[in-house]
Design a binder for these strands. Structure first.
Length: 212
DNA sequence: TGAATGATTTACT
DNA sequence: GTAAATCATTCAA
């Protein structure tokens, strides 16, 4: 019988770096949540960088600082959580220095622990990749919602831990066609070997990028 | 005060 | 392939 891997929160210095560096290095790390209902773990296999205020795709574009985006302007190593399409939560890491509204969206993970709990929440068989292969899906599986808005990822029950490295591929981001030239930037990072990478298709512009 | 819209998912043709 | 679900947030008036 194998012992569970020891997990320790990554330090704030992991988050206090340029957003593209953090997004890239997120791949292979482990998202851990010691929730009231049990321990959940997932290996991060897909993430995107959001580089407001310049980045037209970011909620903090133009320096927009509201009740929703406030966490992005705070210190690195905290959670930025938001609600979209009337039904889905998205989980982000606040990165870079305080006052710089940059974030990394966690788009997909591979379940490592608490799979049965995830399956129950998703109403799917534990073996299905649909458990966590999308940003809204993983939040439902982990029960991540506004309750963890602004949470400190170096001190609380929700954190990132180290994990084995792997090859990392890049592409433009998903679902940000409204962002003009920013939509074409290769700010998405993923593990090309993982079956849990989200099935979302890049836009036409993106496919051209990938074929090049 | 009201209208538009989205860093998506799911079901259906 | 298309469309519906569903509502907090944002911005205009």
């Amino acid at each position: 019988m194998t012992l569970p891997a020891p997990r320790k929160p990554l330090p704030r210095s992991f988050y206090a770096r340029p957003v593209l560096v953090v997004a890239r290095e997120c791949i292979g790390k482990v998202l851990v949540y010691d929730s009231p209902e049990g321990r959940l773990e997932g290996r991060i296999v897909e993430a995107e960088a959001y580089s407001g205020p310049e980045d037209r795709a970011a909620h903090s574009f133009g320096g927009r600082r509201t009740a929703r985006t406030e966490a992005m302007f705070g210190p690195p190593g905290h959670a930025y959580v938001f609600f979209v399409y009337g039904m889905h939560w998205h989980f982000n890491l606040v990165v870079a220095e305080t006052g710089v509204p940059h974030a990394v969206l966690i788009r997909a993970v591979e379940p490592l622990a608490g799979v049965d709990l995830m399956a129950a929440r998703r109403k799917l068989a534990p073996t299905r990749r649909e458990l966590t292969n999308g940003p809204g899906k993983l939040c439902q599986a982990f029960a991540i919602d506004r309750a963890v808005y602004g949470a400190d990822l170096t001190a609380g029950p929700l954190y990132l831990a180290d994990g084995p490295g792997c090859r990392v591929a890049r592409s433009p981001r998903i679902g940000v066609d409204y962002a003009g030239e920013w939509a074409a930037k290769p700010y998405r990072f993923y593990d090309p070997k993982s079956a849990y990478v989200s099935p979302a298709r890049p836009s036409r512009m993106v496919q051209r990028f990938r074929e090049r």
